[in-house]
Structure formats: structure tokens, C-alpha cells
Design a protein around this nucleic acid. Sequence first.
RNA 1: GCCGGGGUGGCGAAAUCGGUAACCGCAGGGGACUUAAAAUCCCCCGGGGGUAACCCCUUCUGGGUUCGAAUCCCAGCCCCGGCACCA
Length: 817
Amino acid sequence: MATDDGDRYRPAQVEERWQAEWERRGTNLFTAVELGSPERPYYNLMMFPYPSAEGLHVGNIYAFTGADVHGRFQRLTGRDVFEPMGFDAFGIHSENFALKVGVHPMDLIPRNVANFTRQLRRMGGMFDWNHAVDTTSPEYYRWTQWIFLQLFKAGLAERKEAPVNWCPSCKTVLANEQVVGGLCERCDTPVEQRRIAQWFFRISDYAERLLSNLDTLDWSETTKKAQQNWIGRSEGANLRFPIPDLDDSAFLEVFTTRPDTVFGATYMVLAPEHPLVDRVTAPDRRAEVEEYRERVARLDLVARKKVDKSKTGVFTGGHCENPATGERIPIWIADYVLMEYGTGAVMAVPAHDERDFEFASAFELPVRRVVAQEGEDPGAPVDETYTGDGRAVNSGTFDGLGTHEAKRAIVAWLAERGLGTLRVHYRLHDWCISRQRYWGPPIPIVYCEACGAVPVPEDELPVVLPRVQDFKPDDSGVSPLARVEAWYRITCPECGGEARRETDVSDTFLDSAWYFLRYPSARREDVPFDPELVRKWLPVDCYIGGNEHAVLHLLYARFITMALKDIGHLHFEEPFARFRAHGLIIRDGAKMSKSKGNVIVPDPIIEEHGADAFRLYLMFLGPFEEGGDYRDQGIQGPFGFLKRLWETVIPLDGLRDGSPDPVVERKLHQTIAQLTVQLSELQYNTCIAALMEYLNAVRAGGRTPARAEVEPLVVMVAPFCPHLAEELWSRLGHGASVFEGASWPSFDPEKAREDTVELAIQVNGKVRGTIALARGTSEEEALALARKEPNVARYLEDVELHRVVYVPDRLLNLVVR
RNA sequence: GCCGGGGUGGCGAAAUCGGUAACCGCAGGGGACUUAAAAUCCCCCGGGGGUAACCCCUUCUGGGUUCGAAUCCCAGCCCCGGCACCA
């Protein structure tokens, strides 16, 4: 039948034809007018890729396909779907790769972008290439710099000192991931901490909002949890410990979640960097304290926070006063106390905190029980720390209170003397956006002797990243741009005096924190985003991406959106109404990696089986939100399905006219019903199984299918296999693209309903037979029929029928004794 | 350590308002077509027993609730992800 040359399914041919056709007709492109007046806008966003030299990998393809299937489905139901694509091409990744291969990133990136674009077209994504963005183009990063300036003007950007990893041999700043086991990944020299001035965005001002808004978002639960963890809200109190040795008003402030244990605070520990260390240190301890502080500074930032190392620290010789007991307690410093959390100081309660107990044991410091469990002797020695709730003991007038009441009562009592207040702290710290690197947008600030840090005037943007041949980080300790004197020497925009540009560039996460605002306005040179377009298209209806960006990217994008809303540039504060994290693709049960040599190379697969089959297979592997295990042979199933679909439709004279067969029609309506629900829920694997089942029904026993049976099938396959669907749709005699009209079939619940059901007959919960009967059969009738079933009757002999459980149209359970 | 998600045939998986476990597909076995192979088509395919009708067992392990549990509850084991000297 279908052996004739012209009639065989040749995916390469079909796909090339339709990719060209879509381009020629502008099927997936919005004109400025269309974008300005959508009837039913649907913004379908996916995380834009970093265009690596290796090209698209399966992870990208998997994510984009899942998102594209969703977008195409929405379009088939009549939505105006905007599905843009772009490239996140700045950053250390590109820079390191460029250094490695000795090609300038300004030459490398366009090549990679071109290759990615080619591969993305080939996959059949419905991308609006008229609105693509590239974060490395000056037209884009001009507005990234503009955003920095808006935040700067709103007081949300500030310059402060912060520790960085420093390699004393390479004399350069290292990112955490460039430190391997405390050593520089390039030269194996031990890494140190260094403090340098950097720009921060005050994201921590937004911690509470970022946290509480999560409740209002339709996001993958795992993603929300990751953000909650990251923000790390913690309720407690700030308590003040006076230092009478210094002066009457001097005090140390600590944050604690257990103010109820303050009576058990037997010593104090400060972070080595704490500003009061110098003042409290006794002269005879100074040498030791300094030596310890230097030792800590030599640790890299990762090693400093390692959990399983034993406690170290030194006594400063100074003392403060426990505000509850009035006792003089010693002040220590230790590296397990971190300057960036809370107040950089802790009151040590060894009886009720693991770390303090460990420290106290190591340095023989006193331990005092102040919380007792049921029936515990308050005076018994503490040989194990207890961190749970209990009754307050050895706590003066608070003895006997439960942990919860004790917290409140003790804070209230200290508050009367100005020594305590309830506080909430967050783990989230401010966003450091400075990078002492080359491949990023220069931070638009100018330093002037007279005027200080001055923003570059908006009409002078962009501050163009100069082409520097030698962009390798060097021993200057600042960005390579600091070597380009002709670039950084300028006059102050305010006073006209001598000034120099900021030579650090900004974090890549800033580029991606606002790209979704730019897409609709991608071709506008006058504004970062057009307010009218924003109003029409945003917030994003559906965002799909990897959970590896659950925290940083998604949190930063939310923060920038909130900040821009507060400043008055946006009308909403949550950018992504719905977010779904896709799963990961593994291969033969193992993670894919270049070193294992088991990465999937898409091009040969597409050549052999076509992008449609590849897309279909990827979506069929497993639940989209969980990922799946890729096996090379597996594509045979979906590929065979497409071939059979083709052969079912293509000899068009093999189709009959007239009404569909009732049994097939019922299956059709069931399939439409299932897909309509499941496609919007991204449950692709079960949708595909249903489509296969339906095709099997259409072809059962070599019957001649009716045109009315296959046309809706072609539409339902379209989100997954757009090329094939277009080809079949057009051969079925339709002039326009299947995606141009609202072609999604509707279903009739009446027609989907089964008239005959199979009822399971159980005896004592075990299935002993099944009977076919009319839908809605009464219990009496069903029971009568069941008794006639020989295998059931067997089990009813010589027993007493004790109870009958009837679930209409499902099962009948006969309980006998 | 804390917080999520998960554990079902040889494999990917389906079924989770409690109601016939294993849809769909891969791999495997058998057959048809062919000189042969590929492609295609048909049949079988969780384990055990039985000529068969059928029967017993099976959703990580052990308990529990229920007429009935992959699904709910309790305890434990294992895998994946996030956070982690966070006070």
C-alpha cells in the first residue's frame, strides 16, 4: 500500500518543508501590531540557554520541547501564544571556555548563538525569532545597566566590603566552584579570604515578601520549598550583654532562637571578624587572638563553613555580663560563628546547643542545665546536650515555665531594661553583583575624588564593554578592565573632574533577572520594556525550567520585579504566575557527562528518525516533571507510531467518508477528554499512551478508518509532532496551518460514556469473576447475575452471605462466612 | 542533622477522592511474508502450580485500619534533590 515512493514517511523531508513554510508565512512570528493587540494573550516562557560551544544538549531539548508542547496546545485552543527564545551568553562559563580555547568571547559567542539557533529551528520549536534577545549585545545590556541605575537611585544598591576567595599565587578572585578542597583549581595553592569593596543589591530587605508571596504562586512545590529553605526565616530575639569593663553603654548583641535559655549562657563567642574583638581583647591575649584571626582568614570560604571539622577558638581575655544572671562570662572567638548571620555573635548555652556543647567540652567551659525534660533532676550533671522543649530550671523566677512561655516572658523581662527585643532573622543575604571579571556588562558607576560614586547618566548608556585582547584575570586583583586605562579614565559626569569607571562587571544572574520583561519589547531601542506591552503580556502565564535555578535565578527575577514595581515601572510584583520544574534525563540509568562519553547527540537521531519522533520519545519517557531514562532503542516505539499514523492517513483514498464507528468514536471522545485535561497539566507521557491506544483502535483488525476518526487525531498529535501534523493536515485538504485556527477538537461527554461496563465480582475481597452489564445496573440485578456466574457460585456454596458491598459500575464484593 | 520527592514486571512506566495491579512502549520469545536480511504484520511475555477450568503469590520491609490497601496510618530500610557550625 504505502510502499510507493512518494507516500513513505520521510521525516527529514517533511520537517525541512514545514520549517521553511513557517518561516515563509511567519507562522510563529508576531508583528508589532499583533503583539500590541492580542485577543487572548498567553506568554509561554522557558529558561533561555547559555549557548555553549558544544551546542544544544538533551537537557535543553527536553525542557524546550516540554514547554513548546504546552505552548502549541494553548495555541490550538485559540490562545495567542508568545513563545520567545534568547541567549544568556555572558558569564564566567563563556569566559573560561574562551580562555581555554584561545578565542575571544566576542567572536566565540556569535558562532555559538548561530549554531544554537540552527539546532533550535531544527527541533521545531514555535519560537518568535523576531523577538529574540542576546544578553551580550549592547542593545540589551544597556538596559541591564539601566536597571542597576534604577536600583541605585532607589537606595537598593550599595557598596560594601565582603570576603572573596583569593588565590595568592594566581593573585585573583575565585568563585566558590573554582576552589577545590581549599585549593585553587588552576594552581593548587591554598586559597585565602580577602575583603574587597563590592556592589550589593539589598534583596534581604525583601526577604519577608519573597517568602510570604510564595503562598500565592502556582509553582512546583519542590521549587517553593527550595526558596523557603534559602530564605531561611528564623524567629527569635536579639539580646544585649553589657560590657562594663569597656564603658557603661558598651554591649554585645546576639541573636538567638532560644532566649529561654539565657540563664544557661556561660560564655560568649564572637566571629573572628567581629568589630568588637579588638576592644575586648586583653593585652596579654592579643598575640594569640591575632594569630587565630589570621589563621581563619587563610581558610577559603567553603572550608570555613565545613560542618564536620572540630571546634577551634581562643579566649580574648575580655568579659561581658549575662543580662539574666548578672554573671561575668568570658568572651571567646571561634570560626564556627559567622559574621554574616545574625549579629556575628552567639551566647553559648552548652547544655542546650550541640555546637556550644562541643566547644565547651573542648575548652572546659561551664555547662548549666536550664531546660529539663519530664522527671529530670535540674541539678544532675549534663552529659549530653538537649535541644528540645521542656520546663525552665535554674532560671530564677521563670522556673517551671514551658519553653514557649519562657521565651516570651524572658524577652519581655529583658526588654523592660532595654536588653532584648523579639527579632526575625533570615539566612538570605544581600546579592553581591560585582564580578572581578571581563565578560559581563560594566557596572555603570564612575568614581570621582570629589563626588564619590556617581551613576553614569542614563543617556550615556550603554557603557560599552571594550574589546580587550588580553582579558585573563591577573595579579592586579581587580577586573581585567582595570588594565585598560584609556577606557576607565574619564571625567566625572557631575563635576567634570578626573574620575575613573567602575571596572567590575555585573553578575550574569542580573542579565537573566529581567529578560522576560524585554522579550515583547526586544526590538525597541527607546525603552527597556514598553509599559503597554507589559500590561498586555505580563506576568508570564507559564514558565518552565530546571530546578537547578530554583533558588538563585528565580529568586533574583522575583526580587528585580518587586523592586521595579516599588519604583513604579511595573504593575505587578510576581513575574511568573505559574512555574513548573522539569525532570532530568538520564541515560541507561546513569547521569550523562562528557567524561563518561554517554551524552546524547541530537543531530544523528534527528537525521534518522526526525525531530518529531525525537520530541515524541522525549515526552514519552516518563512524567515531564520527573524526567526519564533515555535508551537508544526506545525511540522505535514512538517512531513506529508516527509511521503507522502516516500510513493510516496518507493513502487518502484509504479513508472513508461518513460517520465514525461508534466504538471508535467513543474512544476518540475519551481521548480528547483526557488530553484536554492532561496537556495543560504537562502530563505528556500518559497523553502519548492515550494517542497510541486510540490509533490502535482506529487500525484494529485492519479496518478502514473514517476521515472523521483521523482528523482529530492529527490535531492532537500536533503539539508533539508539529511538522508531521502540518503535513497530514494539509494533505487532508486544509489550506491554513493547523496552528492558525483554533483546531483543537471538542468532546461530548455523552459520546465518551461507556454503555456497557465490566463489573468485578469479589468474594471476600478476591476477584472470582467479571460480568458485563449495562451501565447503572441496580445492586439486586447485579447480585442476581453474579450468583449465576459459575466460578462465583462455587464460592457461595455452603456459606452464609454476610454482607454485600456494591460499587456501581465497578465491583460487587460478597462477604461470606 | 533538617526539609522535600520517590521505591510497582528484564527495562521506561500506568493505575493514588481506597474498588479487577501492570495501560502504552522498549527489550525478549514464537510465527507469517522473503532466496535471504531489513522493514512490516500476527501471537506470547510478573512469579509459581495445573492438560485445562482455575488456584496460590506479587507494588521496598514489618505492623495497623478496612468488606477491600500500590493508594490511608505507625515504625524501619534504601535512592534522588535542597539547606546545613544559620546561633
